[in-house]
C-alpha cells in the first residue's frame, strides 16, 4: 500500500513551528516533515512516505540482514558465472554476438499459474 523510500537527512530546521528538513534520495532532494522523529540527526537515514519521515533506518539491523543473505550467499566466481550467462551483458561488454545464447526468449522455468482462456 505504501510507497516509502529511504533517504539521508541533510538539514534540519523548524518552519511554522514544525520540525522539517531536507532529505536526499540518491541525489534527489525534497523538504520532508520530521515531526514524528524528534531524535533524527543529520546524516541519519530515514524512511519517507508522502512527505513524512516515519522511521529511522537502523544501520546495524540492515547490516545484520545483509549478512544473513551473505551466509546463504555465493562465492564471487559463482556471481561472475551468473553474470556472464546473461547474453546481453556479455554482448554489451565484449563481443556483440547474441545468437549463441538461448537468450531471454526461453520460457522461464517458473512460469505457471492459471491460464486465461
Amino acid at each position: 500500500m505504501c510507497l516509502a523510500v529511504p533517504g539521508e537527512v541533510k538539514t534540519i530546521y523548524v518552519a511554522n513551528g514544525t520540525r522539517m528538513g531536507v532529505v536526499s534520495f540518491g541525489g534527489v532532494e525534497k523538504e520532508i516533515c520530521f515531526a514524528y522523529l524528534p531524535d533524527l540527526q543529520v546524516g541519519d537515514y530515514t524512511i519517507v512516505h508522502v512527505g513524512f519521515a516515519i522511521s529511522r533506518i537502523d544501520e546495524v539491523s540492515a547490516q545484520k540482514t545483509l549478512d544473513t543473505f551473505a551466509e546463504l550467499g555465493l562465492l564471487d566466481e559463482e556471481l561472475e558465472e551468473l553474470r556472464s550467462g546473461d547474453w546481453l551483458s556479455q554482448a554489451n561488454s565484449a563481443s556483440l554476438r547474441v545468437g549463441e545464447h538461448s537468450g531471454p526468449t526461453a520460457a522461464p522455468a517458473a512460469m505457471r499459474g492459471e491460464i486465461i482462456e
Binding site: V5, P6, G7, E8, F25, G26, Y45, I57, A62, L66, F69, L72, G73, L74, E78, L79, L82, R83
Partner: peptide, 20 residues
C-alpha cells in the same frame, strides 16, 4: 541509493529463491 541497491541484487535474489 543506499538501502535500496543492496536489496535488489539479482544473483543474491536467485540464491534466496533456491534456498526457498
Amino acid at each position: 541509493m543506499k538501502y535500496l541497491d543492496e536489496f535488489r541484487n539479482g544473483p543474491q535474489a536467485r540464491r534466496l529463491a533456491e534456498e526457498i
